[in-house]
């Protein structure tokens, strides 16, 4: 970096940007096939189950879904990337594969550190109070007990669950779905993540919380993290992400600046 001394300010800024482009997630021609249980659809009698066991065949109500078909992209530090597409386009599937929860059948996914997936159904312990869930959740993210004690009050404040009475000391099963989702997001956002994957988790909160959480996502990015956001609310993608990937039936349809991609996506969605 010594040779940059005489360079104009703007040029050196671009240069550091280029230099600092450190990839955090590299997806290389990933194919994901998973098996789904279709539910009861014939062949569920005990006799049929026994016959399957003897013949060593799979249950007839299990079907293979080729959810992601050869997706490649690279995400860099400090980027917030929106993932959009119609239902069943493979958005959530690719997030789960990045988190290491689904294996790729072909290709590979490389990550920096361990990505954390924040899904809408990420339940903690419903029988325990919100406070205890905060402590447990933070410890489960590998935080030190001293740090947890320091941050616990801040996390509960951020979630806003105490806005209508003392809910933090009540078991989580008494929470509304929005409150539970808010608390979960607050816990997950309390730690610096190299890669944070958010799957529709911001959608459940009310307007005030959504503002706070979008602010938090920006802070996480500035702390050199990469954030992926799956959302059907294009406005929150537009507010938080400068890059957007549009998936359709398991392939990337478009990958670029959010405004362009969303415009194309809206045109596509309206023409259907």
């Amino acid at each position: 970096m010594v040779e940059h001394f005489g360079a104009p300010v703007e040029a050196s800024a671009t240069m550091t940007r280029t230099q600092e482009r450190i990839p955090t997630v590299v997806v290389d021609d990933a194919h994901i096939i998973y098996r789904v249980h279709q539910g009861a659809s014939g062949g569920t009698t005990p006799v049929a189950a026994l016959r399957r066991l003897v013949k060593r065949t799979h249950a007839p109500n299990v079907r293979e879904v080729h959810a992601v078909k050869g997706v490649s992209f690279t995400a860099y530090r400090g980027e917030a990337i929106g993932l959009i597409g119609s239902n069943g386009s493979g958005k959530s599937t690719i997030l789960r594969a990045i988190a290491g929860l689904l294996p790729v059948n072909r290709g590979a996914i490389h990550t920096q550190g361990q990505p954390s997936l924040l899904g809408v159904n990420a339940a903690l312990l419903n029988d325990l109070s919100g406070e205890r869930n905060v402590v447990l959740g933070c410890l489960a993210m590998g935080m030190h007990p001293d740090d947890v004690a320091k941050q616990a009050a801040g996390i509960i404040d951020f979630s806003g669950i105490n806005e209508r009475g003392d809910f933090a000391s009540l078991p989580m099963r008494t929470y509304s779905s929005g409150m539970a989702a808010r608390l979960r997001f607050s816990i997950a956002a309390a730690k610096k993540h190299d890669v944070l994957l958010i799957d529709e988790a911001l959608a459940t909160g009310d307007k005030g919380f959504r503002k706070r959480s979008e602010q938090r996502v920006r802070e996480l990015r500035e702390g050199a993290g990469t954030v992926f956001l799956v959302s059907h609310q294009l406005s929150s993608v537009r507010d938080t992400c400068e890059r957007t990937i549009w998936l359709e039936s398991g392939v990337i349809r478009m990958d670029g600046p959010t405004d362009e991609v969303i415009r194309a996506y809206e045109a596509y969605a309206n023409s259907k």
């Binding site: 450190i22 990839p23 955090t24 997630v25 590299v26 997806v27 290389d28 021609d29 490649s72 690279t74 594969a97 990045i98 988190a99 290491g100 929860l101 294996p103 790729v104 590979a108 996914i109 490389h110 990550t111 920096q112 990505p115």
Partner: peptide, 17 residues
């Protein structure tokens, strides 16, 4: 660089290893 080379250059690990 190919994707795999890029990942190797920056010391990225395979997800869920």
């Amino acid at each position: 660089l190919t994707q795999a080379q890029l990942a190797a250059r920056h010391g990225l690990r395979v997800a869920g290893e």
